[in-house]
């Protein structure tokens, strides 16, 4: 009895190992491409052919440059450089509770204008037709919020000067406000809240390490 079970388990194990061996590189490559596409999407004026993306792990302990194949899992920041090694922008992840589930986004930050220059939704299970990825990203007026959303730091560089917030449709007055979609207020708010939480936490760190980030790019080019 045990021998039979063992035999079946062995056949199974062998089959699974073979499939994993074969598909693993394909899956890794596809996921890398999907991520790269999203990262390039949130940073305008990127030439996808010549730009390079570098993953980093950034937290209070410091900035760590990650090798593409080893530490992709812990990456929480992506810097994009053009072919001359100039920093084009930084992509960061954000998440906040939406209507159904957590809405995950990726946004692009430009250190020159200290503003958010692009946003794409990685995952949203909110009501289809109102708060899903497709509907939100096709709403041009809403996406226009994220082409120059102010994320300037306060003078002590520990938090944002003005928290990013969503306001009722049609009442946006300041560059750090997000004009919500009428009918999808909760999803709009979740996006703004996610951006705010992530920006409050990450942007002071990014600013602190900015010289290194600019410098690192040249190393990347030399290699």
């Amino acid at each position: 009895m045990i021998r039979t079970l063992g035999l079946i388990a062995m056949i199974s194990g062998l089959l699974v190992v073979m499939v994993v061996k074969y598909t693993d590189p394909i899956i890794k490559e596809k996921e890398r491409l999907a991520l790269e596409q999203a990262v390039f999407q949130v940073i305008p004026s990127v030439d996808a052919k010549t730009a390079t993306r570098v993953s980093f792990a950034l937290n209070k302990d410091g900035l760590k440059r990650l090798d593409e194949h080893e530490g992709a899992g812990e990456a929480n920041m992506y810097a994009v450089y053009d072919d001359a090694g100039k920093l084009l922008g930084i992509a960061l992840q954000a998440a906040a509770q939406g209507y159904q589930d957590v809405v995950r986004t990726l946004f692009g930050y430009n250190p020159d204008c200290q503003c958010i220059v692009g946003m794409t939704i990685m995952k949203s299970t909110d009501t289809p037709g109102m708060g899903d990825k497709h509907t939100l990203e096709n709403n041009k007026a809403f996406m226009a919020n994220f082409t120059a959303l102010s994320a300037a730091l306060a003078t002590d560089q520990s938090k944002l000067a003005h928290p990013i917030e969503a306001v009722t449709h049609g009442t946006k007055t300041d560059p750090w406000q997000v004009d919500a979609i009428s009918g999808a207020t909760i999803s709009s708010r979740a996006i703004a809240k996610g951006l705010n939480t992530s920006a409050q936490k990450m942007l002071p760190l990014v600013t602190h390490h900015l010289p290194v980030l600019l410098h690192n790019s040249h190393q990347a080019n030399e290699r």
């Binding site: 089959l15 994993v20 598909t23 394909i26 899956i27």
Partner: peptide
């Protein structure tokens, strides 16, 4: 096997 195949 199907899981990995679809993923790929």
């Amino acid at each position: 096997i199907v899981d990995y195949a679809i993923h790929a």
